[in-house]
Amino acid sequence: MRELYQELILDHNKKPRNRRAMADATADADGFNPLCGDKIHVFVKVEGDRIADVSFDGIGCAISTASASLMTTSLKGKTLAEAREIFERFHAMVTGEPGAPVDEDALGKLAVFQGVCEFPVRVKCATLAWHTLKAAIERSGDAVTTE
């Protein structure tokens, strides 16, 4: 079980980074996972083509909370294009075949979520914050669900 609940995930679940509302956000969006009742609100401040700040608020399971927390620490300061690429890699990892090679250099700490691919039910938890951020940036403004 430790494979899924790595120390880093447990730590970010217990002490989520950047869990706060953002008054000067340039975009924000709601995300909802009706399966487990997880609700998240993601805030982002984009300056030029760079993510100057990103934060979240809400309640969720350890996987979704830690994923949101690590997302914020991984994307702060990245360009939108870099952020998109990281999300694509992250998404490919958690939806990939168990045992498939993971580019740990490119993913950095996010590689800690590689265990998720063995539990398809949890993919929605791991990606909720990311989908919500994407929606915020795309300025859809509409709530995103994982359904």
Binding site: C36, D38, G60, C61, A62, R122
Partner: peptide, 22 residues
């Protein structure tokens, strides 16, 4: 301090099937 989804997942690894959710 523990979300039901995490409880259900860890119980499953012990062979215990329970329901989590609403």
């Amino acid at each position: 301090g523990v979300h039901p989804h995490d409880i259900g997942q860890i119980l499953d690894q012990e062979g215990v099937a329970v329901r989590t959710g609403h």
